[in-house]
Each structure stands twice: as C-alpha cells, then as structure tokens.
Simulated assay, not measured.
Amino acid sequence: MANHLKSGKYGENLAVDFLKNAGFDILAVNWRFKYWEVDIVAMEENILVFVEVKSRKSDLYGVPSDFVDNKKQQNLIQAAEAYIELNKYVGEIRFDIVSVYLETKKVELIKDAFWSN
C-alpha cells in the first residue's frame, strides 16, 4: 500500500476513535455508492452525520479542513442522498469534517461544516 494511503487509513482510524469517545455511534466507514464515498457515517444522538476526514502531517500548507472544496462537498451530498434513500432514513442530518494532524495525533471536529441545498 502506498504511503499516502497508509497515512489516510491511519488518520481515519484516529478519527473513528475520536468520534466514538465523543459519543458517536459509527454506522459505516468508507461507505461507497457508485462514484461516491463517505469516510464515516455515524449517529450523534438522533442526528445522522456524514463525516469527511482530512489528514495532514502538519498545517504548513493549511489546515486539513481547508481541503474540503466545493466539489468534494457536492460529492458528499450526493453520497449522503444515496445513503438516505437506500436506508429509508427520515430525520435530521449533518455534515462534519474531522481534521487529523498525523505528527501530533491531534484531532479536530468541525460540526455543521457545510450544508446541502
């Protein structure tokens, strides 16, 4: 496995542990449908949360969450719509971003990072 893939997987594992410790119930990791993927699907109380994880060694080139651009947001929204339809979910949803700093193992959660239309 390439180093960037190992780093990404390690970052996702740190994010899952962080979310579990924060009281989230993890429903899926790397959930895929067609061309789309959601890094983590979770429940926080009664809210279905779609989480994008961004890992970086440091913030030298910007904080990890800055790398979730509009195109990535739109892809996450499409994946979320598919997940909701396939699972017949009715209720509140939210899009969060988890930033992982690999060198320090620091994890930051941004709730309601963006919204769908």
Rank of each mutant, 00 (worst) to 15 (best):
K6V: 13
A28Y: 00
R94A: 06
S65P: 03
R94F: 02
A80M: 09
L5H: 09
Y10M: 09
S65Q: 05
A113Y: 07
T104A: 13
I93P: 08
S55M: 04
V51S: 01
N117V: 11
V49S: 00
I84Q: 05
Y83R: 04
K6D: 15
V16F: 04
A42L: 09
V107A: 05
N70F: 14
V107S: 04
K57R: 06
N13Q: 11
K54Y: 09
V98H: 02
K111A: 08
N30C: 00
N30G: 09
I84R: 04
D69S: 08
V100S: 03
Q73A: 05
S55D: 01
D17N: 08
V38T: 05
T104Q: 12
V68R: 02
S7V: 10
E92L: 02
D96V: 05
E92A: 07
I26K: 11
K72T: 14
D66T: 01
G8K: 02
E52S: 03
E37Y: 04
S58M: 08
A28E: 01
N46F: 05
G23I: 01
E44P: 00
E81Q: 15
N21R: 07
F33E: 05
K72C: 11
L14C: 10
W36K: 10
R32F: 04
F114P: 07
A82C: 07
V107Q: 04
K57I: 13
Q78R: 15
K34S: 09
N117I: 12
F18A: 12
A15T: 02
Y61V: 10
I93V: 09
V29E: 10
G11Q: 08
W36E: 15
N3A: 14
Y35M: 11
I40M: 02
K6Q: 15
N46T: 02
L14G: 06
Q74H: 11
R94G: 07
Q74R: 11
E37I: 10
K88L: 09
E108G: 02
N117R: 15
F18K: 05
E45C: 00
K57A: 12
A15N: 10
E92I: 08
V16I: 08
F114R: 09
D59W: 15
M43H: 05
Y35S: 11
I77E: 11
K72M: 15
T104H: 11
L102P: 08
N87Y: 12
G8S: 08
N117T: 11
F33G: 03
T104W: 10
Q74G: 08
A22C: 05
V100H: 06
N70T: 15
H4L: 14
